[in-house]
Amino acid sequence: MRLFFAVWPDNAARAALAQHAIGPWPRGTRPIRDDALHLTLAFLGDVDEAVLPALEALGAQLGQRCVPTRMRLAKFGHWNNGIIWAAPERTPKALTGLVAELRQGLAELGVESDTRRYKPHITLARRASHLPPLAPGAIVYPLDHLALVASEAGPTGQVVYRTLARWPLSGRKKRARSKPETPPLG
């Protein structure tokens, strides 16, 4: 099975991303369907189904430990490989922490994932020759869950994503410890 961990957009973020993804696109561009828009946290590639229970346990642990947050997608760009993307101006620390913990957990399970520096982005289109004008404005993208997703070939050859498991992020922010008050001398 081809697997990855991701965060799906909520309805408001999905609608805003889909609005940006309307184009007009350069000839030959393949926009991403709005039901396929997502933020990939870790791509695992082909994984033996026997590892699924361990991946689900990892997802559950991370869901309990990691803090929900939001990111503001305000950058749009085009890579030489034809990908048009949306990305945050600043990557939230909670997202960086989640990805680091996820990569560490995968390594402990012996599951390979990307080792390059994490650059969060949402793919809006493929096979684009250039970045067309896109609707201005930022998109708020909640990071409130973690999903284990299978990537499969659909009946007409397009890629279909199937969520195998999903965990809410329910960790709490660490509060700064306050120093106990020192009684006055005297």
Rank of each mutant, 00 (worst) to 15 (best):
Q104T: 15
T91N: 09
L98V: 12
R72A: 13
A57Y: 03
V99E: 07
G59V: 02
L98N: 09
V67G: 12
W85R: 01
L73V: 11
I84D: 01
T96K: 12
K93N: 15
A94N: 07
V99P: 13
Q64S: 12
L73T: 09
K75M: 13
A74V: 11
V67E: 08
N81I: 08
R65T: 12
P88H: 05
N80F: 09
E89I: 10
L58G: 02
T69C: 15
I83D: 01
R70P: 15
G82T: 04
N81F: 09
V99L: 07
L95H: 08
A74Q: 11
L58R: 00
I83R: 02
L102K: 04
R72S: 15
T91P: 10
G59H: 01
W79T: 07
T96E: 09
V99T: 11
R65I: 09
F76P: 01
T69L: 12
R103Q: 13
K75Q: 15
A60L: 10
E89R: 11
I83L: 14
V67K: 09
L62Q: 06
W79R: 10
I84K: 00
G97V: 05
H78C: 06
P92M: 05
H78K: 02
L62N: 05
G59T: 06
A57Q: 10
P68D: 00
R70A: 14
R70D: 13
N80C: 11
M71K: 06
M71L: 15
V99D: 03
E101N: 13
L58F: 02
L98C: 12
C66F: 05
A100W: 07
H78L: 08
A86D: 01
K75A: 15
R103L: 05
Q61G: 14
L95T: 09
Q61W: 07
V67I: 14
G97K: 00
R70N: 12
L102I: 00
E101W: 08
G82K: 01
E56I: 12
G63I: 02
A57R: 08
L55N: 08
A60V: 12
L62P: 04
N80S: 15
A74D: 11
R90W: 07
L102T: 03
Q104H: 14
N81S: 15
L102P: 06
A100D: 09
R65P: 04
Q104E: 12
W85V: 00
A86T: 00
R90P: 01
A54I: 02
W85M: 01
P92E: 03
R103A: 12
E101L: 15
A100E: 09
G59E: 01
G63E: 00
A57W: 03
G63S: 05
Q64W: 06
A54H: 10
A94Y: 03
K93F: 15
R72Y: 11
W79Y: 14
R65N: 12
L55T: 09
Q104L: 15
I83M: 08
T91C: 15
P92W: 03
L95R: 04
